[in-house]
Every structure is written in C-alpha cells, then in structure tokens.
Design a protein around this nucleic acid. Structure first.
Length: 309
DNA sequence: AACACATCCTGACTGC
DNA sequence: TGCAGTCAGGATGTGT
C-alpha cells in the first residue's frame, strides 16, 4: 500500500494493537524481505524476539516502531518497515487462514495478554523489515507522525538512521512549505520527478503525483524552476488536500493488492481524475486522458489542461 | 552537486 | 491451454 495515505492507514491500524505488545517469536518464509537488515535474519530475530514495541511512527512512506529489547542495550532501536510497491502488514488471530505471499510472521502478545500475529506480505519483495538505530532529527523536532504518544517520550524526536534523509511529508505538523519551495526553485528536472523525490518532499507516489498535477493543470515534465511561486504553492496545497482526503477514506485501492491491517480494501470511492483514467473524458474539459510511458512507469494527464509551457 | 537511468522482484492479466 | 509480453502504487546505487 505504497503512498502516504495507504501507509498512514496501516500505521493507524497497527498502533493501538502493537503499542505495548511483546514479541514472542518470528517465522521467516523469505529472507529477501530482510535484505535491508545488515546483520541478516538471525541477528534480526535475536534483537526483536523478547522486545517490547513502544509505538508506531511514520514519515512519508517509512514506518517504524521503537522497541525496548529484552536485554539491556545502549542502542536506541526501532523495527523499520517499508511496503515498497506491494507490501501489506496485516494483524491476524493465530487461527486465521494463511495469507498468500506471506514473507514473515511476527508473533506478539498484546499488553492485555492476547496473542496475535503481525504478518508481512509482499509480492514483489521491494518492501522490507529491518532493525535500525534511532538518531536525532536534524531539526530536533519530532521524527515523524504518531498518535497517542505522551509528550516528551524518549523516542519522539528520533528517526531511524535509514530514514533520516527523508524530507518531512505534507501532513507532518512540522512540514515547512518554505523549505520545500526553496528546494524546488533550484531544480531543473520535470516537476513530477521532483514530487517523487522523497528528499525534497515525501509521501507522494505515482498516483497522487498524477492527481495533484491534474488538479494544478501542470504537465509532468514542466521544469520545476520554471513554475512560479504562486503556482507552486497552489500545487503544494493541492497535494496536501488530496493526501488528506485519501487518508480520511483509508487510502485508495484498486485490487486485492492494497489492504488495511484487517485485510480490507480501501474505499474505491476516492475519485481519481487522472491516474488510471486513460481514454476517459477529462472531468474539466472532456478531452481524453492520455497515458505516456515515463521513467519505466506511466504518467496520466489531460493533454489539453496540462500543456507543457 | 544535480540529474537520468538501471536495477532489485513476482504475479496477474492480455492477446495470440 | 500455453506462452510471451506487459503492467504494477518504490527506493537506491551508479554513472555522467
């Protein structure tokens, strides 16, 4: 469930169940899901099993859960998860039927004593689970978004080292529009490339990039530095609005691939105006929405409303 | 430094 | 039915 609204839906689903839970054991069905854990699966297992999960935080498309290991350690650690293109994180009772393409199961016991399973499903294996060290954020503000966390919790202003380079996302309370505008103004790449660059602004992927560009009447290849300040603010405002609406709807889903933690698909009702609408009439001007191959994927846009200038 | 591209993967679906 | 080709919502490393 790859873009910000889908990842946030997962985060919000995991948090109440996993906060305070103890990890009892781990089943690994495909070690490739752990390739971003430097020490390998056995090292991952040793650190994780017995530890307590303290919360679930997110920045952009990265999720992490600070942990308190069973044995005393000087390190500040977190279980870091990324869904990649096809990852799912499901919460299941032990008796629940097997989920196809499950790569790992983390068996946990909630703080009220209930045993359940945290299942990691991932068709394409671009997603990952790892344990990483938490480091200070470069602006000393909160690492990411998490709710139900007491102010001043030790891990609040920390972020996994592997996600420290990721820029704040538009729904982050500490998101700075000024910072993003300054970065964008220096970029000569096409605006869509810039929107997808997680170090400039995070959380946006192919769907919401196409949607925000359609809403702002911008061509995907319009050089970023040729877009005026007012227009850029309009674009950022559209990004924010589209992401927020999608979060409220529990993310966008098209098929069996994208699910919340209960395995339910998001509401299809999130009406898309550009993404996947190839051949249909543009809702503004009735011109046929076009799809162009771009960066090994697709870009959907209205050739009339979104002209390259 | 900034930019463009190749690469990691599997499964579902289409059309011949 | 079988098989080849196409498509998929991401991030990273590498070369210029």
């Amino acid at each position: 469930m790859p873009e910000l609204p889908e990842v946030e839906t997962v985060r919000a689903g995991l948090a109440p169940a996993l906060t305070g839970a103890i990890v009892e054991s781990l089943d690994v069905f495909d070690t490739r899901s752990f390739k971003r854990h430097p020490g390998g699966v056995e090292d991952f297992r040793q650190t994780l099993v017995g530890s307590k999960i303290l919360g679930v935080a997110r920045r952009g498309k990265f999720l992490w859960m600070p942990i308190e290991p069973a044995t005393a350690t000087s390190h500040r650690l977190a279980l870091v998860g990324h869904l990649g293109m096809s990852g799912q994180m499901l919460l299941r009772t032990p008796a629940f039927t097997e989920d196809k393409l499950t790569r790992a199961i983390i068996h946990v016991r909630s703080d009220d004593g209930q045993p359940f399973e945290f299942r990691f499903i991932d068709q394409r294996l671009f997603g990952s689970l790892a344990i990483d060290e938490l480091v200070e954020t470069n602006d000393s503000l909160a690492g990411g978004f998490s709710d139900g966390v007491a102010e001043g919790t030790w891990w609040q202003n920390l972020i996994p080292a592997s996600a420290a380079h990721i820029s704040r996302d538009p729904l982050d309370p500490n998101f700075s529009e000024t910072t993003v505008l300054a970065k964008v103004a220096k970029k000569h790449s096409g605006i869509k490339r810039v929107l997808l660059d997680q170090q400039t602004i995070s959380g946006i992927g192919n769907i919401y990039a196409d949607e925000a560009l359609w809403a702002s009447k911008l061509h995907y290849d319009q050089p970023a530095d040729s877009i005026g300040n007012a227009k850029m603010r309009e674009l950022l405002s559209n990004v924010k609005e589209i992401l927020s609406k999608a979060v409220l709807q529990g993310g966008t889903s098209f098929d069996e691939q994208y699910k919340n933690v209960n395995g339910e698909s998001g509401y299809f009702a999130v009406s898309l105006n550009a993404y996947g609408m190839t051949g249909t009439a543009c809702k503004r001007c009735s011109t046929e929405i076009k799809r162009e191959s771009w960066m090994n994927r697709g870009s959907h846009f209205c050739p009339k409303c979104q002209k390259l200038r």
